[in-house]
């Protein structure tokens, strides 16, 4: 009999050799748990993320924008589906995963607990939130768990599309009327810091990060990804004439990166703890949809069973 220590070594050797871990492969319990948590959080984020954006579908200011937004929110639902399937490869059913969201046990990205107050928020979300998500997701295309990595490859293509569309909304507003430009700047002001928080705690305060890096679930640290995002986004803001709301932001010739201010971690912790502006509304909306949809799902199951029975008869 092979002992666990040995299995652990074989597993780690596989990871080190850049081989993907597949559902049927042996894996340490902690690796499985870590991934189930991460992928389901990711799935929930896609689905809860539909709410702040869906909020503007009926009010999009042109039919073209309405169509683009509908398609985007539809993509996010698709991302949720792929990711719930990826969780299922680890032996946890979609129902169970969703129940954990609905009961408040599972987390989702805190960014979606902020409200979309004006049309420019739809631009800001695409540009900044999808933009920040891409940083993580591009990294995850090379994550060690095969089904997760493959889901990410499909998702990344669509996310970069979303990012460009969001940026374009902002660009049009920024060169529009003074009111439009003000709307865009206001949205940037409100979404900038929460977007930076999306990368998670600083490396010094991120206890699970080292293990995740060793298992190659993560391949770049929170702070590294955050810095790349900042460097890229500051330049994009400049191009369209918007100002990043950080007085400490400054190009550092030595490091070739931007220096920037400090994240308000009290706010971050508050939102994670359930006290964000929309935590209650988001969870209530998911629960309402789920409860009101129960009879629909039951009808589908009942009909399928009747049909199968008739076929067998």
């Amino acid at each position: 009999m092979t002992d666990v220590k040995n299995l652990d070594d074989i597993f780690q050797a596989k990871i080190d050799a850049e081989q993907k871990i597949e559902p049927k492969d042996w894996m340490p319990d902690a690796y499985r748990k870590n991934l189930i948590r991460q992928i389901s959080q990711h799935a929930h984020s896609e689905v809860v993320g539909m709410l702040p954006e869906g909020n503007w579908i009926t009010r999009a200011p042109s039919l073209k924008r309405k169509a683009i937004l509908l398609a985007k929110v539809q993509d996010e639902a698709g991302h949720g589906l792929y990711l719930y399937s990826a969780v299922e490869t680890m032996g946890v059913s979609r129902e169970q995963t969703i129940d954990d969201l609905l009961s408040g046990k599972a987390k989702y990205s805190s960014i979606f607990n902020y409200p979309t107050l004006t049309w420019a928020d739809i631009g800001a979300i695409g540009w900044l939130v999808d933009g920040a998500a891409i940083m993580n997701q591009v990294m995850l295309c090379r994550t060690s768990y095969g089904p997760y990595a493959r889901a990410m490859v499909r998702i990344c293509k669509e996310e970069s599309f979303h990012q460009r569309q969001g940026y374009e909304i902002m660009a049009v507003l920024a060169k529009g009327s003074p009111e439009q430009k003000e709307m865009a700047q206001d949205a940037l002001n409100r979404w900038w810091w929460p977007s930076l928080m999306m990368f998670g705690p600083t490396d010094a305060n991120s206890p699970h990060s080292a293990q995740s890096m060793k298992w190659k679930i993560k391949r770049q640290s929170n702070d590294e990804l955050r810095q790349i995002f900042i460097d890229r986004t500051v330049q994009q803001a400049e191009v369209i004439g918007l100002t990043i709301p950080d007085p400490e932001l400054k190009w550092n010739e030595e490091t070739k990166h931007y220096d920037w201010g400090t994240i308000d971690w009290t706010e971050f912790n508050n939102v994670v703890a359930g006290n964000g502006p929309c935590n209650k509304e988001r969870l209530a909306a998911r629960n309402k949809a789920h409860n009101e949809g129960a009879w629909v799902r039951e009808a589908a199951v009942a009909y399928a069973a009747k049909k199968a029975k008739r076929k067998a008869a």
Binding site: V47, Q74, G80, A294, V296
Partner: peptide
């Protein structure tokens, strides 16, 4: 309905 469908597939 977007984001409020009875099941994710129906939302899509």
């Amino acid at each position: 309905w977007c984001g409020h469908g009875p099941i994710l597939e129906e939302d899509i």
